[in-house]
Design a protein around this nucleic acid. Sequence first.
DNA 1: TTTTGAGTTGTTCGA
DNA 2: GTCGAACAACTCAAA
Length: 486
Amino acid sequence: MTESPVLLWFRRDLRVADNLALQAACESGRAVIPIFIWAPGEEAPWEPGGASNWWLHHALESLRSSLEKLGSKLIVRRGPTVEAITRLVSETGATTIYWNRLYEPAITERDIRIKNWLRGSGVEASSFNAALMFEPDTVQTRLGTPYTVFTPYWRACMDAPPPEAPVPAPKRLAAPAQFPESLRVEELGLLPKVDWAGGMRKSWEVSESAAISMGENFARNAVQEYSDERDRPDHQGTSRMSPYLHFGQIGPRQLWHMVKLQSSKGARSGESSEDCYLRELGWREFAHSLLHYFPATTEKPLRSSFEAFPWRHDEKSILAWQRGRTGYPIVDAGMHELWTTGWMHNRVRMVVASFLVKHLLIHWSHGARWFWDTLVDADLASNTLGWQWTAGCGADAAPYFRVFNPILQGEKFDPNGAYVRRWLPALAGLPSAWIHKPFEAPKNVLASANVVLGGNYPNPIVEHKYGRDRALAAYDFVKKPETENL
DNA sequence: TTTTGAGTTGTTCGA
DNA sequence: GTCGAACAACTCAAA
């Protein structure tokens, strides 16, 4: 029976390089059958959103073609996962299955169940790490508790052995005498029925090779300016690797070593721009660790004092925010970038999130849901951490008094207004002096720029100072013992 | 056990 | 225009 094939279960590790499950399958010396099982319901209540599915479709097509170049195939099936695997085991006579681990609560629980069940029925099931540099179990305080503050967490990571060098892609995958049947990727129905993905197609090349060349290009050039440029949404200062990382088209170990390889060439002392970037990869690790140890945080604030927070219920405000019609150009530009490309610059994410949660006093979960549906890099761990951080109710959260001023943030990080003009063509004619505050511009300036407030661009839905003061008052509610508020 | 230093990304106000 | 302080207090993590 040593000739029985190995099932290689792809999930969100859609690459052939630095894929430890794939490597193990190759090293088994047996035929390998790569499989993908579509079972979004098993991720409820966080089933992948529309933008995410659009990306997944292309990532699967890309993986399929990579596997074909290795002499193999990608066998695509629908869930439920247990049934799909049972069927594949009986169709192929496989006695072994390998996969790479994920860390979301619903998936972890399912995978443990599957692993136990497989082992009970005589199938060898092993999982590997392709998604993280430091898995949650390996980084703990001296008391054996999880870290809840980033800096000591990352320090502990840096004291641990560095990430292993990535393993190269195999040259060939041994094929079985016969592959089982497969659905075509398009049969999964991942693409939108009404094509809204034109802006995404223009913005992204969804493939493993694109991920690697973008990563290498970033490591060779832009990373040196990263600490200065990363806050400029009008520049290309960030790596834009987030969706590739989410779907595992590139792994953090690969990026780590790409960056380290370059930084060792120009050895500098002190905190380098490269370290600044690697620390951002560290935040991704930290988010996964937090989600692992505090799985309820996808729904509930980590700080329970926030359960009583006086959020406003206001559908109109939520809608204005989603549509990019808040009247604050930097906020609206960000929401348009998101809607069009499935991605938003990190600095702008903070601004729009702060605006929703603080100026509008809308529960962070509404923001988390919208991001979940619209981001191509939607990731449960990072999304949860980010929104709770903004709202102040999470681990290592922003202090309550940190209320971003959308005008100042725009002027500081998009000083010429190029970002706003790109995403809000209606404002393109405004001089830079007014681009982030059209509501303060003189009438004749607005007229000659063809801007009609309340017409082709909205008036602010909340005045900044009013919104800020209201937010600070609301946060008083959390700060003080409840009796003082009564 | 107790103590101590520190904690991603900001804004406003008054000197 | 620039600069420092205030905006709170808490809790984490390590010694």
